[in-house]
Design a protein around this nucleic acid. Structure first.
Lengths: 349, 349
DNA sequence: TATTAGCACTCGCAATCTTAGAGTGCTAAA
DNA sequence: TTTAGCACTCTAAGATTGCGAGTGCTAATA
């Protein structure tokens, strides 16, 4: 196993990647020898390149072009070669002004996503998990609709509101519903959602027999409300902005590839699964090309980071762009953004 | 003004358009003479073509290619030449099954939009007007949040729910808010939204002085609620599906053009303005190319129709695709879809 | 032993040229 | 008014060429 790379080879690989990321052109031995700062000839570089190629770090598009990095090469680059210059104070200050704790999660996510897109000139994305596990039910309210339907309104935490329509067996008056809601509020308000769910489906149901009829009705309704994976919160938890930026990149000028990519964005599901995977990781994470297992992400990389409140990762944000992106700039941006969002959320709590 | 077109010239134009729409290739005089069904020679056709060109109905991409329709040519085609074969019973039946009155407007719009996209292999769109003018306020409810904020919940018609957060000068208890809500409900519930707005801003405000303090508070809150153009209903009223289908068309293979188009889709505002213009028109309306005034829509056409309930146009739906589309198929599809959606809405009322 | 210079060779790209085919416009005849 | 004939134009697709960049290999060098 010749996984060991000499110091010089590493340096050359690094310079090669930097050069390729800058210019987009395959890098030849002469240019590399010149740019490397090392006092070696092109021929020497060629030998090193042959080694790197054997290790799968670089490849040439054809016999007589220079070398370009492979995905494996990028991986090595971001993992151990890249030198990142942290953002300076001033830049951070400018960013800090962007995110306030105001508005709903939705609004925050949208603004963060489009900010990321704007500053990196790539596509930005922010994921909002269904409903944070630790959020608590504040209030529940019923309202009669026509046709034996009832509108249930849940207030969660301080600002989130979920509406669900449920069906019941007969018409209920507003007063009846008020009673049921009162009962449920007295039992459930202030508890965490997981707990609420649990209580309804287990404890209350079991003790249902023998209770007042009103309470029985209330519980039956609550079962419906908490059982269905409330549609609104389930689908709207992923925001993406600036996809069109990706149309500007050379490597995505193939329209078929672009189409696959955009279709994947529309699916949402796929991307969400992918993002879900980073939720455990710490700090900035990077997916390079099809490492993720999705062929459509072929020439793309994702740079992501989780944002958190009270140590719990609430969601993921990041950008997606061509594999050939300026990592040394993008990584700190995503990093700082995640921290600022965390801060904004903590403050608004 | 030589706006008059001989019968034969019209026929030739029609055949030319049909042929071009089918094949995408410029149509030459020989082929046209053959396909026209007329017993004339290519030379005769050439003369007619020269006339048509002078009228701006067709043009040739270069000296020795055939002719292709101009926007003006398409306009004439769809306005007076096109023969539309209505969908047969069976097709309509298949479609009828697609749309139910179930679910929220949002859900219906999404499903209709993606249905349109699927069946036409172009992009589908459905606009939902802010909130129908004639919809009425059913119920209003306040709930205290932290930091002197209050969550206002409006129930409109039977299913629509709007949430708004307002700020107030001090903390109010749930009981106080309940009182205020009761008062407002007694005054306003059941009225149409426009009326509600009017009442609050004019009548009640004027008589405010001298009322109980509780009522004054209630009115102040209501002012806030109905004054801001509630964000949720304002932005989410336009659904588009299958944009990626547009990537498959020859005439949109230019990536810059495509980008402009997709950016316009993201803006929403522009498209909405455009759609707003059709709201008065009757039946199916067609925009060809940049007739609309938006350069990005250069090689595209929109086929739209309003859907209505009780004679009032509630919204617009339609498709957007290349100018060179199969109008004779798309037009009846959009037409029938609009009628079916109207029916579904009427039924679910 | 590691590095270097030299050299033949490969390949892609762009420019140039060629050819075939399609279609036109014009003119003169029917 | 229509038609046939003909010269002309233009494009798209191949074929050919030269250039430049870059490689791999070998033999000489430190």
């Amino acid at each position: 196993m010749a996984e060991e790379l000499g110091e010089r080879a590493q340096h050359l690989l690094k310079v090669l990647e930097e050069s390729y990321i800058r210019s987009g052109q395959p890098v030849g031995s002469r240019a590399l020898a010149r740019d490397s700062g090392l006092d070696v000839s092109a021929a020497t570089v060629r030998n090193a390149m042959a080694d790197l190629e054997e290790l799968g770090m670089v490849k040439s598009p054809h016999t007589s072009a220079g070398r370009i990095p492979t995905n494996k090469g990028y991986r090595m680059f971001v993992d151990s070669l890249l030198t990142i210059t942290p953002l300076n104070e001033r830049e951070i200050m400018t960013m800090r002004g962007q995110f306030s704790g105001e508005g709903s999660k939705q609004e925050l996510a949208t603004s963060v996503s489009s900010y990321l897109s704007g500053i990196t000139a790539m596509a930005g994305m922010v994921m909002i998990p269904r409903t944070a596990k630790r959020s608590s039910l504040r209030h529940i309210e019923f309202m009669p609709l026509s046709d034996n339907r009832i509108l249930a309104i849940l207030v969660i935490n301080e600002k989130e509101v979920q509406n669900t329509v449920i069906r019941v067996d007969r018409h209920y008056t507003a007063a009846e519903l008020q009673q049921s809601a009162n009962y449920l509020n007295s039992e459930l308000a202030g508890r965490e959602l997981l707990d609420v769910r649990h209580r309804i489906l287990k404890e209350l149901r079991e003790t249902k027999v023998g209770m007042e009829q009103m309470m029985q009705q209330a519980i039956t309704m609550a079962e419906q409300v908490f059982d269905q994976p409330s549609s609104s919160s389930n689908s709207d938890d992923f925001v993406m902005s600036g996809q069109t930026c990706l149309m500007g990149f050379e490597e995505l000028s193939n329209i078929e590839k672009l189409r696959g990519l955009f279709e994947a964005f529309n699916e949402k599901q796929q991307i969400l699964q992918l993002l879900d995977r980073c939720i455990d990781g710490d700090g900035v994470q990077i997916f390079i090309g099809e490492e993720s297992g999705y062929g459509v992400l072929n020439e793309c990389s994702m740079v992501t980071s989780g944002y958190q409140v009270d140590g719990e990762v609430l969601g993921i944000l990041g950008v997606i762009g061509p594999t050939r992106m300026a990592y040394e700039r993008v990584i700190p941006i995503v990093d700082v953004t995640a921290k600022l969002v965390s801060a904004a959320l903590a403050q608004s709590k």
